[in-house]
Design a binder for these strands. Structure first.
Lengths: 146, 146
DNA sequence: TATTGTTATACTCTATAACTATA
DNA sequence: TATAGTTATAGAGTATAACAATA
């Protein structure tokens, strides 16, 4: 996962990157709304936001109308990090698609966009957030030490 | 992960599917060789093979020349399961690519093949086997219960 | 002493459920 | 009683390291 490596240089993980981007697109949204949009369960979102908060990238401001909710905002540093992430994304894409001409890249993008749309994916939202519980594997058995 | 769901109907996971296919392509190979080819560490391979062995899909036969190694073989049932997996793969692909004409599918495949080759991927080997340790995230902080 | 495979153990990621504060 | 967010806990997947048998 080359992209993850690049993001790690910013002391973040790919899930963090998606959250920063989502917040920047709708500043002030609640955790509930953010989690709903990305498909992250509340408990997981809390931890990811804690980490972003801790790094000074995101602020949880009190909502005056409803004291149960936080209004999520990017800090100045958060905005700068988002720009750095955009650079990282461009670099990653350049490396990944090095084998293709720019015409081929556009073609690939349009084919994939068709597929994504037909599959009902939301643009800008990585489907990996919505985790699907795998089937339970039964365990152990043979293979004793000879 | 729709493919994983389909594979789960056969009481397997995607990693199992790749192993069955790899064994069928070189019957009799050792665990070391298999793990090397797919990029699976020995301890993980043992468990995955235990599960396949237990389901009667794979046999670990003693190698006569070197009693430390096992020669891996598909059982008859393993061969049948591999065919079922091929069907599953075709169904999955059909669903995934429903938005594309067959010409577009070929085009997509050729673009992706170019990218994969340039990236040094081995045909037939899912890159997900080679796990990359993520950067350690520092933990916890704000967000105390109000 | 080196190699093949196994076991023991630890760590990461993610989910479910119980809980607190507020509505 | 219902909702937003948090904490506690558990489970799945994978890795590292110590180990046994054989070379």
């Amino acid at each position: 996962m080359k992209f993850g490596k690049r993001v790690a240089d910013l002391d973040l993980t790919p899930p963090h990157a998606g959250i920063l981007r989502a917040i920047s697109m709708s500043e002030g949204m609640s955790q509930k709304a953010l989690g709903g949009r990305l498909g992250i369960v509340p408990s997981r979102l809390v931890e990811l936001l804690d980490e972003l908060d801790q790094r000074g990238l995101v602020e949880r401001r009190d909502d005056e109308n409803d004291r149960r909710v936080y209004a999520l905002h990017l800090t100045k540093k958060g905005g700068a990090t988002l720009e750095a992430l955009a650079r990282v994304g461009r670099e990653h894409q350049e490396t990944l698609l090095a084998a293709l001409t720019s015409q081929e890249r556009e073609l690939l993008a349009s084919l994939l966009a068709k597929v994504a749309e037909e599959q009902g994916l939301t643009p800008g939202v990585h489907p990996g957030y919505a985790y699907l519980r795998r089937a339970r594997r039964s365990r152990k058995g043979p293979g004793a030490q000879r």
